[in-house]
Design a protein around this nucleic acid. Sequence first.
DNA 1: CAGTGTTTACAGCGAC
DNA 2: GTCGCTGTAAACACTG
Length: 426
Amino acid sequence: MLSLSCAEPWPEGSVGLEEEVVTAAAQAEERDGVSGTDSSSCSVSLDDSLTSLQWLQEFSILGTNVPHHAHHQHHLFGHQQLGSEAPASPCRMQPLPGIVAHGHCPDDVDYKTNAHIKPPYSYATLICMAMQASKKSKITLSCIYKWITDNFCYYRHADPTWQNSIRHNLSLNKCFIKVPRQKDEPGKGGFWKIDPQYAERLLSGAYKKRRMPPVQINPALQNRLRVNVQPQPRGQIGLCVNPESQRLLREFEEATGADQNWDPHLAEGTMLGSWPVVRGRCGLKRKQGSRNGAAKAPVGPEIGPLKGDFDWDALLDSALSGELSLEGGEPLSPIMKEEDLTVRGTHISPVEAPAGSAEAERSNNMSDFDEETFLATAFLENPWPEEEEDHGRSDFLCSSTVNLDQLFGLEDSLGGDPSSRIDTLL
DNA sequence: CAGTGTTTACAGCGAC
DNA sequence: GTCGCTGTAAACACTG
């Protein structure tokens, strides 16, 4: 087993192999020369955390313990498996697939090996992915770099300025918390983790539609291409969710939502809701009050960054142990203590316990964030599906006609009402 | 010196 | 047009 570090986003069956993973990670980093000082980044203690997303592997809506459905997500983002033996697949320099002219299609675009097309994820999302992939509570910058380059070939060939953007994102994005390196921890730079605070806001509906980037061809590779690429104009990507995909989505929802008795508060206590938090209210720390001070007013009284002594671990423990029961009506977080939430002019009541219609509630709350969470989590769960996978199975969207742009841009395609979109899907 | 982290500035885009 | 989000670029400071 090699490099089950950040280079190995989802080492299958890694639970229980953490020590081995840690060792391998350290060795891998040493071997790969990835900022040797960061070996700890991928081998930090496994338990300190709230931000640890390992629970997600088990609790995840896509949990691998739901094998029947799990494989449905395997092909969301391509066919290539993230080699468990080889952390970084060689990038394909093949001619641009026809997909370039037709939008991203998971069937055709393998971001792990396709260096031509920029992954349709924001840097913040990539960071979150890396964080989850690390299965650790915190992650170093170099580990983020490594994970991204290992899993997105585009960035292996792209101008390294993207790393600047990553750093910029980490610093500027409130979602990310810097965890200073302990004095006894050798190495350079600190660690980063996700601030769960913002998951709450998102789970309260306070998030915004993600913006889909246009198809981007790696500039570094563009010159190597002898083909004229004419990316399809935005908005010309037609949505085509075939019945099979809809059925699978429904199955997926049933298996993961109902079975898990999805609980937004629990999710917030953990990291479920926090990682694609990257969008929306968790936004950037822009110049305060520069453009719209009032609009930037925090949701409810400013509760502060909660970066200090707030015991997120305790919160997580409480959540997981059921102490933070929705039924109890006890607020779970400072934010949830607020009676009302007003986000962008939209009044949002604190999330109530599902009253009879959890599905309806979820549907109502389902929005872009959920979509991205859904997709990205699926990706995280198994970004590079096993090729030996039984292709005869219903591979969720693999065999469907839904592509990334379509999924991420679902809102647009379905008329703009987030709540109606999932309904449409379901 | 390289890597890391912060900050500022600006442009593009979508939503409103 | 305004606003918010995202990406990009750059300058600068800090640290090992």
